[in-house]
Design a protein around this nucleic acid. Structure first.
Length: 364
DNA sequence: TGCATTTGACCAAT
DNA sequence: ATTGGTCAAATGCA
């Protein structure tokens, strides 16, 4: 089993490397194909081994999918849902609704069909922070004093409905593990509550285009409609100043310990819907301790999130409803977690901290 | 033209 | 000094 896990880990690592090199390899389809083949081969080998395994008891979640093992419908549904949500977060699928992810057609670039048209043509690569950033950069370099705003039909949106935190300040939507800066609030015609506008804290620094709009539901004040506009590029930008440390050696013992103790779903994408019964049932907090003991959180990510995220750097690995790269996250969790503290993985399991203060009203 | 969205200056909190 | 909220005004869209 250790060897099988090593295959999976290696596959994840290669996938991540491939992802980071997409801008460079975009013009080298042969290299891309070769990389894909290699990754598929590794995962294929792993799957074959898994199929040959008789005893899955120690890894009930980890390998349920990969091995085709029978799992409860609820579990499979949850795994599917969380993965799709991650894809949506990554590729900006349009107007998905919480409680029912809309069908995703697997076609086109990284495998997904966007809800909106790609009006920027080839200059804009879906989900590619690098190219997108370059485009934004050219805009900012325009000496024309006229404001340059993206046309409304250029943006990609997705919509979520989330519940207010049960504990603490219920006037604000639950933390989504990204750092946002509020830039406006406005009374909306026909709405009882104002709409708040947020942009990514790193918008200026890294040209991160991510924005969100938060509006309390009229008929249910404890629910928020959150519209996410564009994706975060700040944590995967090639220009980001802090680069994750090179992956340390991962011993089979580490892998086994980790996988044996951590539920697969949490590990892969940390995609938990606040109202998802399956997800809630799935989280086993009794297993957190072992995960922490592994010291997986070494490095950049832990302290930042835990302290409110205001210093969150662009290279950090984020986990949340918007977790990106479900598979890559697994590798990131193992490799990138850098340094130190024994409770360095706390951020994975604490989503109650809110950094936003209640906003005052604004007349505009 | 009205409304939604964004900008940028200003200010308070840390 | 830095970060983030507020607000008037500018801008885009239907």
């Amino acid at each position: 089993m250790e060897e099988t896990l090593s295959h999976i880990v290696r596959g994840c690592k290669l996938a991540r490397e491939l992802e980071s090199n997409i801008p460079n390899l975009a013009k080298q389809p042969r290299m891309l194909a070769k990389s894909c083949d290699e990754i598929m081969k590794i995962f294929g080998t792993a799957k074959e081994r898994l199929n040959a395994q008789d005893d899955h008891s120690a890894y009930p979640y980890m390998f349920a999918q990969a091995s085709g093992m029978e799992t409860s419908g609820e579990m499979q549904e949850w795994l599917k849902t969380s993965y799709l949500q991650a894809l949506q977060a990554q590729y900006g699928l349009t107007e998905s609704k919480v409680g029912g992810i809309e069908p995703v057609t697997l076609s086109g670039h990284p495998g997904f069909e966007l809800g909106g048209r790609d009006r920027e043509g080839s200059a804009r690569s879906t989900g590619s922070g690098g190219e997108f950033q370059a485009m934004e950069g050219s805009d900012s370099g325009n000496s024309n004093s006229q404001r340059l705003r993206r046309r409304k039909d250029d943006i990609r949106k997705r919509k979520e409905t989330v519940a207010a935190p049960r504990i603490g300040n219920t006037d604000i939507p639950p933390d989504d593990n990204f750092t946002w800066r509020k830039y406006g609030q406005k009374e909306i015609l026909g709405s009882k509550y104002p709409r708040s506008y947020y942009r990514c804290t790193h918008q200026k620094l890294y040209n991160c285009p991510a924005k969100k709009q938060v509006q309390r539901l009229e008929h249910d004040p404890f629910m928020f409609d959150i519209t996410y506009i564009d994706d975060h590029t700040c944590h995967k930008s090639a220009t980001a100043p802090s680069v994750p440390p090179p992956p340390p050696e991962v011993t089979p013992e580490m892998i086994q310990a980790t996988t044996a103790q951590l539920p697969m779903g949490r590990w892969l994408s940390m995609e938990l819907k606040p109202t998802g019964e399956a997800a809630n049932a799935f989280v086993d907090h009794s297993q957190v301790q072992m995960h922490v003991d592994l010291g997986l959180g070494e490095g950049s990510s832990s302290s930042m999130v835990g302290t409110g995220g205001s210093t969150a750097g662009p290279s950090m690995v984020r986990f949340g409803r918007e977790a990106e790269y479900p598979v890559v996250d697994l590798a990131d969790t193992m490799f990138n977690s850098g340094s130190s503290s024994s409770n360095s993985m706390d951020f994975l399991f604490t989503h109650t901290e809110e950094k936003w203060e209640p906003a005052g009203d604004k007349k505009n």
